[in-house]
């Protein structure tokens, strides 16, 4: 089943002569195990797309489906529940709540969902271990570096049984080496069966995706194709 599907989605802001179309007739899908990157200049609608994908906003036209469920058929509380259980967000920075430790930040969605604290902590520790951050579970965000904070943010976005990861310029505030490690983690999540949408303007990081979608003026302008047929010569010679 397609994890995320946008079918002819349009999002309009404002009204009357101030009306602005942030997205127009956008259709795309993300399968389990797939990492899709969305590239485009600022104002092309990338952030709007991500808001729609996670139910933070509703489409003016078209449907958004997560695991087959039409998001517009869900109420605010059910959408929130979806964000607790199946969808995770990672932002460019300030992802973590200052007053909570890394572990508490990661276990937050589960606790909000009613999971008993001890189990939630256990799940949080697992997620942090995947991100190689297990030793820093009791540190506060201000004690962590930018890269470490992003790792914790990703841990929170994937904790429990969440499958759809929505990342909005997660590497924006990081240097390239740290950024690469973040991308590896996103890749790892998808390799484990999750689905991810990565919004970025950096081609190097977009290249980690299975598919890159180009967004321009609210529309999908282009899309890279997966390589078909035998692997490229390059890849072959690379393997000795």
């Amino acid at each position: 089943m397609t994890t995320l599907e946008l079918a002819r989605v349009t999002k309009r802001f404002g009204s009357g002569h101030l009306e602005v179309d942030a997205l127009t007739d956008v259709s795309m899908g993300v399968q389990p195990g797939e990492l899709v990157a969305v590239m485009g200049p600022s104002g092309s609608g990338k952030t709007t797309l991500l808001s729609l994908a996670g139910g933070l906003d509703t489409a003016s036209e078209g449907t958004v489906r997560v695991e087959g469920v039409d998001l517009s058929s869900l109420g605010a509380r059910e959408l929130a529940r979806l964000r607790r259980r199946r969808i995770g967000y990672v932002f460019q920075q300030l992802n973590l709540i200052e007053g909570l430790t890394a572990g508490e930040n990661v276990s937050l969605p589960l606790e909000l969902d009613g999971v008993v604290t001890r189990s939630a902590r256990g799940a949080a520790l697992e997620a942090l271990a995947l991100m190689e951050m297990a030793e820093l579970v009791d540190r506060f965000p201000e004690e962590l570096s930018g890269g470490e904070q992003q790792r914790v943010a990703i841990a929170r976005a994937v904790v429990g049984e969440r499958i759809l990861l929505l990342a909005d310029e997660p590497t924006g505030a990081l240097d390239s080496v740290t950024g690469e490690s973040v991308l590896r983690l996103l890749r790892g999540h998808c390799d484990r069966g999750g689905a991810g949408v990565l919004v970025t303007h950096d081609a190097r990081f977009a290249a980690w995706a299975d598919r890159v979608v180009f967004l321009r003026d609210g529309r999908i302008a282009d899309e890279t194709r997966a390589p078909e047929g035998p692997e490229s010569l390059l890849a072959q010679t690379a393997r000795r």
Binding site: A76, A80, L82, R83, R84, L112
Partner: peptide, 16 residues
């Protein structure tokens, strides 16, 4: 505000 927004993004409802 940011904290409250993160709460919402993590799946918190207005009542939270």
């Amino acid at each position: 505000l940011r904290t409250l927004g993160l709460l919402g993004a993590a799946g918190g409802e207005p009542r939270h």
